[in-house]
Protein backbone atom coordinates (compact mmCIF):
# COMPACT_ATOMS: atom_id res chain seq x y z
CA UNK A 1 0.00 0.00 0.00
CA UNK A 2 1.16 3.52 -0.55
CA UNK A 3 1.59 6.39 1.85
CA UNK A 4 -1.65 8.23 2.75
CA UNK A 5 -1.61 11.70 1.22
CA UNK A 6 -2.91 13.27 4.43
CA UNK A 7 0.30 12.33 6.17
CA UNK A 8 2.45 13.78 3.44
CA UNK A 9 0.58 17.05 3.52
CA UNK A 10 0.70 17.18 7.30
CA UNK A 11 4.45 16.73 7.15
CA UNK A 12 4.66 19.47 4.57
CA UNK A 13 2.54 21.83 6.67
CA UNK A 14 4.67 21.10 9.70
CA UNK A 15 7.87 21.87 7.83
CA UNK A 16 6.32 25.05 6.46
CA UNK A 17 5.35 26.21 9.93
CA UNK A 18 8.83 25.45 11.21
CA UNK A 19 10.22 27.48 8.35
CA UNK A 20 7.94 30.42 9.08
CA UNK A 21 8.79 30.33 12.76
CA UNK A 22 12.47 30.25 11.95
CA UNK A 23 12.23 33.11 9.49
CA UNK A 24 10.31 35.26 11.90
CA UNK A 25 12.13 34.58 15.15
CA UNK A 26 15.77 33.99 14.36
CA UNK A 27 18.04 36.99 14.19
CA UNK A 28 20.86 35.45 12.20
CA UNK A 29 20.54 36.32 8.55
CA UNK A 30 21.93 33.05 7.25
CA UNK A 31 19.56 31.04 9.42
CA UNK A 32 16.68 33.14 8.14
CA UNK A 33 17.72 32.33 4.61
CA UNK A 34 17.83 28.65 5.51
CA UNK A 35 14.37 28.88 7.00
CA UNK A 36 13.09 30.33 3.76
CA UNK A 37 14.63 27.39 1.95
CA UNK A 38 12.77 25.14 4.35
CA UNK A 39 9.50 26.83 3.43
CA UNK A 40 10.16 26.30 -0.25
CA UNK A 41 10.95 22.66 0.44
CA UNK A 42 7.70 22.26 2.30
CA UNK A 43 5.86 23.63 -0.72
CA UNK A 44 7.76 21.23 -2.94
CA UNK A 45 6.78 18.31 -0.79
CA UNK A 46 3.16 19.36 -1.05
CA UNK A 47 3.43 19.72 -4.81
CA UNK A 48 4.99 16.31 -5.26
CA UNK A 49 2.53 14.77 -2.83
CA UNK A 50 -0.46 16.30 -4.60
CA UNK A 51 0.93 15.14 -7.92
CA UNK A 52 0.51 11.65 -6.55
CA UNK A 53 -3.22 12.40 -6.21
CA UNK A 54 -3.64 14.04 -9.56
CA UNK A 55 -1.34 11.71 -11.40
CA UNK A 56 -3.49 10.66 -14.35
CA UNK A 57 -5.87 12.46 -16.66
CA UNK A 58 -9.33 11.16 -17.34
CA UNK A 59 -7.87 9.32 -20.34
CA UNK A 60 -5.29 7.60 -18.20
CA UNK A 61 -2.24 9.55 -19.36
CA UNK A 62 0.32 10.65 -16.77
CA UNK A 63 0.30 14.25 -15.51
CA UNK A 64 3.31 15.96 -14.08
CA UNK A 65 2.08 19.41 -13.08
CA UNK A 66 3.21 19.11 -9.51
CA UNK A 67 6.55 17.51 -10.20
CA UNK A 68 7.45 19.98 -12.91
CA UNK A 69 6.44 22.80 -10.63
CA UNK A 70 8.67 21.35 -7.93
CA UNK A 71 11.58 21.20 -10.35
CA UNK A 72 11.10 24.85 -11.23
CA UNK A 73 10.96 25.75 -7.58
CA UNK A 74 14.24 24.00 -6.90
CA UNK A 75 15.91 26.00 -9.65
CA UNK A 76 14.37 29.24 -8.47
CA UNK A 77 15.41 28.48 -4.91
CA UNK A 78 19.00 28.21 -6.03
CA UNK A 79 18.70 31.56 -7.80
CA UNK A 80 17.15 33.13 -4.74
CA UNK A 81 19.90 31.92 -2.47
CA UNK A 82 22.52 33.30 -4.81
CA UNK A 83 20.96 36.77 -4.79
CA UNK A 84 20.29 36.60 -1.06
CA UNK A 85 23.86 35.72 -0.23
CA UNK A 86 25.07 38.42 -2.61
CA UNK A 87 23.04 41.02 -0.73
CA UNK A 88 24.39 39.61 2.52
CA UNK A 89 27.96 39.97 1.38
CA UNK A 90 27.54 43.53 0.20
CA UNK A 91 25.92 44.39 3.52
CA UNK A 92 28.68 42.75 5.54
CA UNK A 93 31.29 44.78 3.69
CA UNK A 94 29.69 47.93 5.08
CA UNK A 95 28.79 46.63 8.48
CA UNK A 96 30.37 43.83 10.42
CA UNK A 97 27.37 41.99 11.75
CA UNK A 98 25.05 39.23 10.72
CA UNK A 99 22.34 40.18 13.16
CA UNK A 100 19.06 41.46 11.73
CA UNK A 101 18.55 43.79 14.67
CA UNK A 102 21.68 45.69 13.74
CA UNK A 103 19.99 46.79 10.55
CA UNK A 104 18.77 49.80 12.43
CA UNK A 105 19.22 52.57 9.91
CA UNK A 106 15.83 51.76 8.54
CA UNK A 107 13.21 51.09 11.12
CA UNK A 108 11.83 47.59 10.97
Amino acid sequence: MSIPIEHVISLSALLFVIGVVGALTRRNLIVILMSIELMLNAANLALVGFNRVWSVTAEGAARYDGQVFALMVIAVAAAEVAVGLGILLSLIRNRDSLNVDDASLLRW
Binding site: I3, V8, R52, L71, I74, A77
Partner: peptide
Protein backbone atom coordinates in the same frame (compact mmCIF):
# COMPACT_ATOMS: atom_id res chain seq x y z
CA UNK B 1 8.77 6.76 -2.10
CA UNK B 2 6.27 8.90 -4.00
CA UNK B 3 7.49 7.94 -7.45
CA UNK B 4 9.36 11.14 -8.08
CA UNK B 5 12.78 9.76 -8.75
CA UNK B 6 14.00 12.63 -10.88
CA UNK B 7 12.94 15.19 -8.31
CA UNK B 8 14.72 13.20 -5.65
CA UNK B 9 17.93 13.19 -7.65
CA UNK B 10 17.74 16.89 -8.38
CA UNK B 11 16.88 17.62 -4.80
CA UNK B 12 20.13 16.09 -3.69
CA UNK B 13 22.13 17.58 -6.55
CA UNK B 14 20.88 21.11 -6.20
CA UNK B 15 20.14 21.45 -2.53
CA UNK B 16 22.78 19.36 -0.91
CA UNK B 17 25.25 19.85 -3.73
CA UNK B 18 24.83 23.47 -4.60
CA UNK B 19 22.73 25.50 -2.23
Amino acid sequence: LMHAELIAAIQILVYAGAI
